[in-house]
Amino acid sequence: MGGERPTLVTKVARAEHGDNHFRGYWLNAELLGHHSMASIAGLAVGGPASSGEDRALLEDMAVAVNVADPRIWPLKVTRLVSAYGSMFAGLAAGNITMDRSLLSMEACCEIAARLVALAERADDLDDAGLAAYLADAWPERRPPGFGVPARKEDERVVGLVGRVRDVYRRQDRRYFRLFERVAEVSRVERNLKPNILLVFSAIALDLGFPPESIGALAWALVQASFQANAVEGAQTAPELMRQLPQEHLYYVGPPDRVSPRAARLRAGRSG
């Protein structure tokens, strides 16, 4: 035992002389020229090496999820922190905000697991049966994958669904077909609207991503939104982000009060 180095196992990568390994492939010899940022990101999080139409669809997913308005809360964090000049700090802080938050992509893993469980029996369910199944297995008032705040529909869903229906017409996209059924039944029976997490998870399953990797895939593909805000935030570094003017604040904490020590001192002086 003495003198032996502690060792961990990794499936990610290894530096070699002349080339490097990445997720089971040689970087120069096998991946270079055959992959893009989105498909490398997919490989990075433990998904398959996609190609052809699957890769094109993954690219579309990467575009569809990048809503980069700097006012969206995690992106606001990126703006606030990059206001001191560092895009790296802004990027890190915005990403950390996603951890277990209301806006995280971790729900994709749960959604994907539910779709997989449903898929095993979906062919035997008519719409009424599907509605009953969902009421039992997806019982939340607003299950993960549903809910569109502040607008009538999730425009990202509209965009991505349009692409799949118009461009990627293969009939073997089993989970996307399931998404369509689940979305329609949920709309009719429970007045629920699907958000991007539901359709994203379904498509990712069709592309061969294991359920437990889909949250990480979604996170990896939204990085362009963080990067855009981190770069501009650091380049402009506005004072307004470092310090808000007083007139835009209001205090709701405890009222003014005197500490016991100060009170005793004052009493001693006056007594």
Partner: peptide
């Protein structure tokens, strides 16, 4: 104060229900 970016940013994370560590 919350006017300053460190407290402002941490408050956003709290509003997002990020983990305490985050």
């Amino acid at each position: 104060s919350v006017a300053e970016a460190p407290a402002n940013a941490a408050s956003v994370a709290q509003a997002c229900q990020s983990s305490l560590a985050s």
